[in-house]
């Protein structure tokens, strides 16, 4: 059995008395686009942050390509790229300077970093705007820049929290297309969203998460079939009731 891109066992995260994630089990295969779907506060972002090694599980464990996120975070960080929800960028840098800075942070090899910047610049579609300061960007432009940053280094696992939030229909569509293409090239995606339509279009498999627990996990088609509905929203409603 190949090593999964990500596996979680009985994962639990508590903030004081509040349980954000409870008994979560997951297995994501390499090259898969896997989505966590659920309403705000359901534990999606917390799970993603634990996968990104910036939060530690209260109990249970989570591994990325066989490396424990708590025991071997350095190894994990070399394989992932994380895009937080509603993240910003350094407003005093230009878009190009930002990509260059991030490439230097993630890739120590100068040639690889330069290649990543070139790729990220193309992916962003921001063209001449990349020479302007990020402070002058719209929310959508910033998000596109951040997404490009997240995937330009071609991580083995891209962890994207609400990747298309703040993007208009056209830009959102382009981002989804890019993610699909990158997955074909071998990048694994762990995505969180509460946009069911987006998730249905993007994901190979989805996990519906609610109050820190996974209620169901399958392909969108199988979930709809299992719950005899036409869309994932109804699947969620039936599960949550």
């Amino acid at each position: 059995m190949p090593t999964p891109a990500l596996s979680a066992e009985k994962l639990e995260k508590k903030y004081g008395n509040f349980t954000a994630v409870s008994g979560l089990d997951l297995r994501i295969e390499e090259g898969e686009i896997f989505s966590l779907v659920g309403p705000n506060g359901s534990g999606k972002s917390t799970t993603l942050k634990m996968a990104a090694t910036i939060l530690f599980p209260t109990s249970g464990k989570i591994e990325v390509f066989g490396s424990d996120t708590v025991g071997e975070p350095e190894k994990v960080r070399k394989t992932i790229s994380y895009l937080p929800e509603e993240a910003g960028a350094y407003k005093t840098l230009t878009g190009l300077e930002y990509l260059d800075f991030m490439a230097s942070v993630f890739l120590r090899d100068r040639a690889k970093a330069a290649e990543a910047v070139k790729y990220g610049s193309e992916l962003s579609g921001l063209k001449d705007k990349l020479k302007e300061k990020i402070g002058t960007y719209s929310k959508g432009m910033t998000r596109k820049l951040l997404l490009s940053r997240a995937v330009m280094i071609r991580p083995r696992l891209a962890i994207l929290d609400e990747p298309t939030s703040g993007l208009d229909i056209i830009n959102g569509y382009e981002v989804r297309k890019t993610i699909k293409q990158l997955a074909k090239d071998g990048i694994t995606f762990l995505i969180s969203s509460h946009n069911m339509l987006e998730i249905e279009f993007l994901s190979d498999r989805i996990a519906i998460i609610y109050k820190g627990r996974i209620l169901a996990c399958d392909t969108p088609a199988d979930l709809k079939k299992r719950f005899s509905t036409d869309n994932l929203e109804e699947v969620f409603i039936k599960l949550a009731q």
Partner: peptide, 11 residues
């Protein structure tokens, strides 16, 4: 700005 989260998840 959550730029810190990105840096913390980097190598």
């Amino acid at each position: 700005n959550k730029t810190l989260e990105t840096l913390l998840s980097s190598p």
